[in-house]
Design a protein around this nucleic acid. Structure first.
Lengths: 113, 113
DNA sequence: CAATAATACAACCATCTGGTTGTACGTCAA
DNA sequence: TTGACGTACAACCAGATGGTTGTATTATTG
């Protein structure tokens, strides 16, 4: 397991806390797209979209490769999985807590109420 | 399935994009705690912690119940699961995409390269 | 080489954020 | 009833965010 720095986790959640960036992630997950192809999908300026892609890249959720004069964005699925597992681990903690409480109740029962 | 509004998703990711708030979630998941009990764990002012709890509550990740003069915070696990499933769905999309590409390659193979 | 396309980035702006202090209000204890 | 406790919230501040326009850089095309 990689030890995740708080700064990195902050950046990942922050990057996902914007609907345009979440949409970019979904679109790029479906097929790799250049920054200008992405920009065509949104009302905002090219520079606006470019900044969003840069934010996703800083967070490690997206990477780019140069093809001619285009920069092709692709999703870094491992980073997405990292974020997902942070939340899935909470689910595990929760189940452990519920089990713990159930045990306590069972003990009370066994000890004669 | 509940249709999730972008505003709500924004708020949930945003709430999780702060290390103090993520820590509060973890601590409150382990055991319910009052706002002042929580506040004792952090360097910042009581009001600072109170605002963080309020942000988590606005995002629906935490709820509070009054006990005497204390407000006891508890995690809304269903909301955490909602966020987790948004990311887990991306994993499903990814697997579908990979399968699609594998099929294309298999077709090429079958069609004699 | 000149012109255009795709990108990056600086500078700017309004708004949001994460923190602070101070004040007000409901609840418990003496 | 009077304090003290636990909480909420307003006002304020510095710095981040999400958008804009304008300019510079690099790569392709005629």
């Amino acid at each position: 397991m990689e030890a995740l720095l708080d700064d990195q986790v902050d950046a990942m959640f922050q990057a996902l806390a914007d609907r345009t960036r979440r949409d970019i992630v979904r679109r790029v997950m479906d097929e790799e797209l250049s920054v200008s192809e992405l920009a065509d999908s949104y009302e905002m300026s090219f520079a606006g979209v470019q900044k969003h892609v840069a934010a996703l890249e800083r967070a490690g959720l997206v990477s780019k490769r140069r093809v001619g004069r285009a920069q092709i964005a692709r999703v870094e699925m491992s980073a997405i999985r990292t974020v997902a597992s942070l939340l899935n681990e909470l689910e595990d903690m929760w189940r452990a807590r519920v089990a713990r409480i159930d045990d306590l109740l069972a003990d009370d029962e066994a000890a004669g109420r």
